[in-house]
Design a protein around this nucleic acid. Structure first.
Lengths: 207, 207
DNA sequence: TGTATTTTCAATCATTCGCTTAAAACTTCT
DNA sequence: AGAAGTTTTAAGCGAATGATTGAAAATACA
């Protein structure tokens, strides 16, 4: 088993390679030989550091999941106003997505492949549930104040996530149908932040 | 090679089984033995009807793709007004999605696995490109009339697709975080049609 | 009944894949 | 120098998988 800092670098090199391969090919599509090749090492060394393919995958997946959910959802915790939380959430999501546009497709692939693992994962992520409760409270507070129309918190969350995440998932399809280059398409997405916030608020606000 | 109508029934039985297995496990995750078992036949019979796994898959995929795109996109062809096309598109998408909620995840998995096939597929689907052009024309027409603010057609299409399709993709995640049962969640989605249309129109309309 | 078609069965073949072994070479630190 | 840890090489095991073969049933049809 590896112990010093040198081996730690190697571990990270392998994990980075594994991330690349897993995102491109999915769990079943990726082979340990692929990952070893991408990392520039030999296959026995993979088993020297991580005992199994599943082991490597779960680390890669955990990180991807956290980058898109756990980290971002801290922005809707606490008792800030809904009108502070919405921009913060959209902002966090869009920044993460522009940097890692392939993460959503990776996550949803895996969720479909084994949804039972998701339940397990959520059990160890109580802060996500807390975040959602805090978000709900902020929604109900505004409804009672009469500043927004009655709306389910989950509906609001669905709309926000949809407008932020889907364009990255469907990028190949939408580029093809609209005959726009990937570069141009990504530019459009990068400018969506304000549009999304405005659209969401216009939908719920009572003026 | 099969020739009569009896064998045609068998073909459909196999394709239905293949669809079930491919949607649940993806291309790589599904084995020909899985499909044979699901169809209640033996594995050599698979090769008797369809020569290869890839062969079966491409038929299943083609049908899934058409059900969500080609068929639905007929609703935005022609020179109808944008305010007729938007409800028609949302309606077509939502009806299809409520009936087959797992199709989007299946399609996007495959698009990620081999995007090069998508380009090829679009070449044989010129009517999709036509549909998008017609949709664009309807958008520009309204902008010139001053009934809607200047908006890119692709942005509008992104928003509509996002609000319709994403909730089905992220169903497991959103159910888990909001602690809503799948049944309850699907009920909410079924009622989204009008909300989405209103949201989209409110976003672009100049009153 | 006779002929062609469809389906089953058992047995594999060749390939790929995850993983392991064993021995050697290289590096790092004491 | 010596010990401990790290990496490479070569070889390959056992299992799963896509695909196939060949012969026998079962079925349909004329």
């Amino acid at each position: 088993m590896p112990k010093n800092s040198l081996s730690h670098e190697a571990e990270e090199k392998i994990l980075k390679a594994a991330r690349t391969v897993f995102i491109k090919k999915g769990y079943k599509g990726a082979t340990t030989r692929d990952i070893a090749a991408e990392a520039g090492i030999t296959s026995p060394l993979l088993n020297y550091y991580f005992r199994s393919k599943e082991n490597i995958f779960s680390i890669v997946y955990e990180r991807a999941f956290n980058s898109l959910y756990s980290n971002v959802y801290h922005t809707i915790m606490g008792d800030a106003s809904l009108f502070e939380k919405i921009p913060a959430l959209v902002d966090g999501l869009m920044k993460e997505l522009v940097e890692n546009p392939d993460v959503p497709s990776f996550i949803f692939n895996e969720v479909t492949r084994s949804p039972e693992k998701l339940v397990e994962r959520f059990r160890s992520k109580m802060h996500l549930l807390e975040a959602y409760r805090d978000f709900s409270d902020s929604v109900y507070a505004e409804v009672e104040k009469g500043t927004i129309r009655p709306v389910r918190p989950i509906t609001l969350l669905i709309n926000i996530q949809s407008l932020c995440i889907y364009p990255f998932l469907a990028r190949p399809l939408l580029c093809e149908i609209s005959n726009i280059s990937i570069r141009e398409y990504m530019k459009i997405l990068a400018r969506r932040r304000d549009e999304i916030i405005e659209m969401i608020e216009k939908d719920i606000r009572i003026k």
